[in-house]
Design a protein around this nucleic acid. Structure first.
Length: 214
DNA sequence: ATCCCGAGGG
DNA sequence: CCCTCTGGAT
């Protein structure tokens, strides 16, 4: 199914503006290894990145590797990550996830989307972040709450389902831009195109946005 | 569709 | 008080 030329032009204009506005932007989560990015991304569900970084700074200082993290008790892990919310599920998932990595992957993170998604607590969004950011292997566009909201406002999709949204975006955005596009949209969504009160008067995408001022 | 869940903004 | 924050599993 061929894409309308004007749809692709619309996307090109959005990408160009994002790249000019945020030439340096990258992943806002702090990490030193792929394993740490994986854990930080699991913690980032329904939580601000600043809070995740506060928690992981202490967590990774004493427990930097998968085997360190797998060795923590459920109660101790819960205590360390409590302020990120969903702490029971996240603690259980991180422990099981690290246990699996130690047992089946030598404590390393697999560079494979299908294997990543099988890990407890790891969905498509998390897997795309890790592969694209830590390994430089873009397997898709990262679709989180910000990317969903902004791609809808910008008229790049009318879907609600994250998988459908990702398909629409992958068709409009060149592969080499997938990860940068994701991070810039997320950054723009936090700073300007906010969920509650979007700052349309200071938005560098306003001239190509169907929803500007709404 | 629903649950998990703390923290901050308005 | 209500909404939102880089979701995932059931």
């Amino acid at each position: 199914m061929a894409l309308e030329p004007q749809v692709k032009q619309h996307a090109t204009g959005i990408i160009r503006r994002l790249n000019r506005t945020y030439p340096e932007v990258e992943c806002a989560l702090a990490y030193q290894t792929p394993l740490q990015l994986l854990v930080a991304t699991i913690l980032s569900a329904q939580c601000t990145d600043e809070r995740v970084n506060m928690v992981t700074r202490d967590l990774f200082k004493k427990h930097p590797t998968a085997s360190d993290l797998a060795a923590l008790s459920q109660a101790e892990m819960e205590r360390l990550i409590k302020s990120t919310g969903f702490f029971r599920n996240k603690a259980k998932n991180i422990r099981a996830c690290c246990e699996t990595l130690v047992r089946h992957h030598g404590g390393d993170v697999p560079r494979d989307l299908d294997q990543l998604v099988q890990l407890p607590g790891v969905g498509r969004k998390t897997a795309n972040v890790v592969l694209g950011t830590a390994f430089g292997m873009a397997t898709g566009v990262v679709v989180d709450t910000h990317v969903s909201r902004l791609s809808q406002r910008l008229g790049m999709t009318v879907r609600q389902d994250p998988v459908r949204i990702e398909q629409d975006l992958m068709a409009q955005v060149p592969r080499k831009e997938w990860i940068g596009f994701s991070h810039r949209l997320i950054h723009h969504g936090r700073q300007v195109c906010k969920a509650r009160r979007p700052l349309c008067d200071q938005c560098s995408l306003a001239d190509v946005c169907p929803k500007r001022g709404v």
